[in-house]
Design a protein around this nucleic acid. Structure first.
Ligand SMILES: NC(=O)c1ccc[n+]([C@@H]2O[C@H](COP(=O)([O-])OP(=O)(O)OC[C@H]3O[C@@H](n4cnc5c(N)ncnc54)[C@H](O)[C@@H]3O)[C@@H](O)[C@H]2O)c1
Ligand SMILES: NC(=O)c1ccc[n+]([C@@H]2O[C@H](COP(=O)([O-])OP(=O)(O)OC[C@H]3O[C@@H](n4cnc5c(N)ncnc54)[C@H](O)[C@@H]3O)[C@@H](O)[C@H]2O)c1
Lengths: 225, 225
DNA sequence: GCCAGTTTGTTCTCACGTTCACAAACTTTT
DNA sequence: AAAAGTTTGTGAACGTGAGAACAAACTGGC
């Protein structure tokens, strides 16, 4: 959706593959926790919910980390994917807009275990500044620049109302943030070199509604294919 | 991601287009609220953050709703897209798992204005059953079947921990739900004819991290293309 | 050491999605 | 009424992605 392909990178991985690597990583963590030492592409593909040929092709972009006739070493592959994604160390993250959604995000423990550390919670509303969420103080939005430069933050999350989102994004970019995850239902305009990904619940539901509507047409025939 | 293409439908719209229609709809609502009566494909494309050729091709799958030399009537096109998506009437929705995230979702007002109505909040934990969130009672998970059949619910949202998600999905499907929005970080297995869409925050962040890592390599060159 | 069985890595083909470019269809000006 | 200017809808070219199929590379039994 974002991520302009740069010109001449050593191995550059297709965007569709990049989007699946985290799914494989999650599946490998589950397998590892279950004590599985080795798995075939078929098993891992089933755990990740994809076709095994697609999985093998995806992994081939990273290198040859499997053994023919045997499969993949779970922990070794897990490390290689984590390294490729860049989550062998934690990324500092700031969340802006500590309302309903911001609270849920701040309280989410899955962050930490997957390579991210929430270093700051920012909100424009002074009434929120007394609060501590999941052990982190809610601070004034104006502290953004200081926090970003002091902590070397590259990733920002926007959970403010839609009207504020573009302003927040502009300030983030000016402060040095170059990757943004946007929950506000609005299109963000950012300079080249800055990546934006959006999560829009309403859009997801509307896509489901579209297909649901089609199912109910044509009697009970539905989607059988 | 889901949505197997059925065999022989009158006009069936490419999946990539379906995913963008809600974005166009959102942009049209904004334009309409701002009092704009007519807009060109160029303007609408800018508001939606896409290429204008892509927009025109997407709209052409719905029919010929524009006028050459003039553009599109904002309210007319808005209605046509809403009708195509199926959000001219409200869809009843149940949310299962009223924890951190479930609370945020239940409190989200954007639902209502975009074609959805939260008719029930369900949780397995008896301690939650006294609670009222956004005017809706939190009820026992076992009420699922009754609510689904009484209210004709087709869409369910899963916001439980990952370990419970597959069980919840199975119960939903058995109860008659055929579209699921899953926030739990796990792969759901469902029968044909049931659509699943997933929202995974950690995956989104990991995709950003991958690109971020690449930017910091190669000195200050970065993604300039 | 050889043979049978297993599983990866990769090639090839087809389907899908994006973008360009332009004729067709409209409005406005002269 | 014709010419000039806009803007849509779409055909055609290009690029990316998915999946089948298979040779290459390994293991284990004999
Ligand atoms: N709640 C959900 O489940 C949900 C679902 C989908 C999308 N969203 C979107 O996520 C965003 C947040 O939703 P919410 O329900 O948490 O809203 P909210 O109103 O509860 O919280 C918004 C917070 O942002 C703060 N804020 C406002 N302007 C700001 C600014 N300029 N700088 C910093 N902080 C600012 C407010 O003080 C408030 O605390 C909205 O855009 C909403 O559309 C929410
Ligand atoms: N909080 C976030 O911002 C966030 C972000 C990304 C993903 N998620 C995912 O969303 C899910 C919910 O997260 P959360 O932070 O709200 O968790 P939570 O623990 O706060 O809430 C989970 C709720 O589900 C209920 N529940 C458990 N088992 C159930 C069952 N079988 N049937 C019905 N209800 C059941 C629990 O009683 C609890 O109320 C998790 O899978 C999490 O990984 C959350």
């Amino acid at each position: 959706m974002t991520a302009k392909a740069s010109s001449e990178n050593a191995r550059d991985i297709p965007e569709a593959t990049v989007a699946r690597l985290p799914v494989y990583l999650r599946a490998l963590v589950t397998l590892s926790d279950a004590g599985t030492g080795t798995c075939s592409s078929e098993e891992l593909a089933a755990a990740a919910g994809v076709n095994s040929a697609k999985l093998r092709k995806d992994l081939s972009y990273l290198g040859s980390y499997g053994t023919r006739g045997v499969g993949y070493d779970v922990d070794y592959l897990r490390y290689q994917i984590a390294r490729e994604i860049g989550v062998t160390q934690d990324w500092p993250v700031v969340i802006v807009g500590i309302g309903n959604l911001g609270h849920a995000l701040a309280n989410y423990s899955g962050f930490r275990s997957r390579g991210f550390r929430v270093v700051a919670l920012l909100d424009a509303d002074p009434e929120r500044h007394q609060e501590v969420v999941a052990g982190v103080d809610v601070r004034p939005f104006d502290d953004l620049e200081q926090i970003v430069s002091e902590q070397g933050v590259a990733i920002g999350v926007i959970a403010t109302p839609a009207v504020a989102a573009q302003d927040v994004a502009d300030r983030m970019v000016a402060a040095g943030i170059s990757s943004i995850l946007n929950f506000a239902p609005t299109v963000l305009v950012v300079p080249d070199g800055v990546d934006v990904r959006k999560v829009d619940l309403s859009i997801e539901l509307q896509i489901l509604a579209y297909h649901e509507q089609r199912k109910s047409q044509f009697g009970a025939q539905g989607v059988t294919a």
